[in-house]
Deep mutational scan, measured.
Amino acid sequence: TEYKLVVVGAGGVGKSALTIQLIQNHFVDEYDPTIEDSYRKQVVIDGETCLLDILDTAGQEEYSAMRDQYMRTGEGFLCVFAINNTKSFEDIHQYREQIKRVKDSDDVPMVLVGNKCDLAARTVESRQAQDLARSYGIPYIETSAKTRQGVEDAFYTLVREIRQH
């Protein structure tokens, strides 16, 4: 089974770092803004072998026109913010609204991801993020692309959301 996953969120929150940590098991430290990259990885989730087709997208506003296209083809979405960047957390709402509009559905598989949880300088409390996820009816997972904490959990949870859909 193949799953088309799309990673969305503001610029600099760590979308590529999360994806590369999942696929290649290493942490990319330097920031190089993405336009669009796709990665494929075969994994076993709950005993089922599946192929993850992951689209890593641009957070930069100037590429926002490309969003409709990949939102149409994606089956599930990782909505990523950084726990030390309140603005990126506030941006999640717009991504969710755009996904709902493009998919013409209120019920699209999504996982809210709070990345950079290895950093002490948190400005978005776990509780705020949990409340937001609960209001959307989606899971919330904290990750660190640096330490790998929660990385597999985030992507695998999204696959489970798609399966249950």
Rank of each mutant, 00 (worst) to 15 (best):
residue 141 I to K: 11
residue 145 A to L: 10
residue 163 R to I: 14
residue 28 V to F: 11
residue 109 P to L: 01
residue 35 I to H: 09
residue 17 A to Y: 00
residue 125 E to H: 11
residue 83 I to P: 14
residue 4 K to A: 09
residue 32 D to M: 08
residue 110 M to W: 03
residue 96 R to Q: 06
residue 144 S to T: 14
residue 136 Y to V: 09
residue 87 K to G: 02
residue 138 I to P: 04
residue 111 V to K: 04
residue 51 L to S: 05
residue 25 N to W: 09
residue 53 D to Q: 03
residue 95 Y to D: 08
residue 83 I to E: 07
residue 99 I to D: 00
residue 1 T to I: 04
residue 25 N to Q: 08
residue 115 N to T: 14
residue 148 R to I: 14
residue 144 S to M: 15
residue 14 G to E: 00
residue 23 I to S: 05
residue 123 T to I: 10
residue 121 A to V: 13
residue 163 R to P: 11
residue 4 K to F: 01
residue 94 Q to R: 13
residue 151 V to S: 14
residue 161 E to L: 11
residue 50 C to Q: 07
residue 47 G to I: 12
residue 57 T to Q: 11
residue 72 R to K: 00
residue 65 A to V: 08
residue 86 T to Y: 04
residue 44 V to S: 04
residue 52 L to I: 11
residue 158 L to R: 03
residue 80 V to W: 00
residue 9 G to V: 05
residue 146 K to V: 15
residue 101 R to N: 03
residue 16 S to K: 02
residue 74 G to M: 08
residue 90 E to Y: 04
residue 115 N to V: 15
residue 77 F to W: 03
residue 137 G to K: 07
residue 159 V to H: 10
residue 47 G to Q: 06
residue 107 D to Y: 04
residue 140 Y to T: 03
residue 98 Q to K: 11
residue 165 H to P: 09
residue 28 V to Y: 07
residue 95 Y to E: 07
residue 18 L to P: 01
residue 118 D to L: 09
residue 21 Q to S: 05
residue 153 D to T: 14
residue 83 I to W: 08
residue 65 A to D: 03
residue 57 T to D: 06
residue 8 V to L: 01
residue 159 V to K: 15
residue 78 L to V: 03
residue 26 H to Y: 08
residue 77 F to I: 01
residue 137 G to R: 11
residue 125 E to A: 08
residue 158 L to I: 12
residue 87 K to E: 00
residue 18 L to Y: 03
residue 117 C to I: 09
residue 83 I to M: 06
residue 134 R to K: 06
residue 59 G to A: 12
residue 124 V to I: 14
residue 152 E to N: 15
residue 63 Y to K: 14
residue 154 A to W: 08
residue 136 Y to P: 09
residue 105 S to F: 05
residue 103 K to G: 07
residue 116 K to S: 15
residue 108 V to E: 05
residue 104 D to Y: 03
residue 131 D to W: 06
residue 7 V to P: 02
residue 60 Q to M: 15
residue 125 E to I: 11
residue 151 V to H: 13
residue 14 G to K: 00
residue 4 K to V: 07
residue 48 E to D: 01
residue 106 D to K: 12
residue 32 D to R: 01
residue 73 T to G: 10
residue 1 T to L: 09
residue 70 Y to W: 04
residue 67 R to V: 13
residue 18 L to F: 14
residue 137 G to Y: 13
residue 90 E to S: 08
residue 112 L to T: 08
residue 54 I to L: 05
residue 24 Q to A: 13
residue 110 M to Y: 02
residue 12 G to A: 14
residue 8 V to T: 03
residue 159 V to P: 06
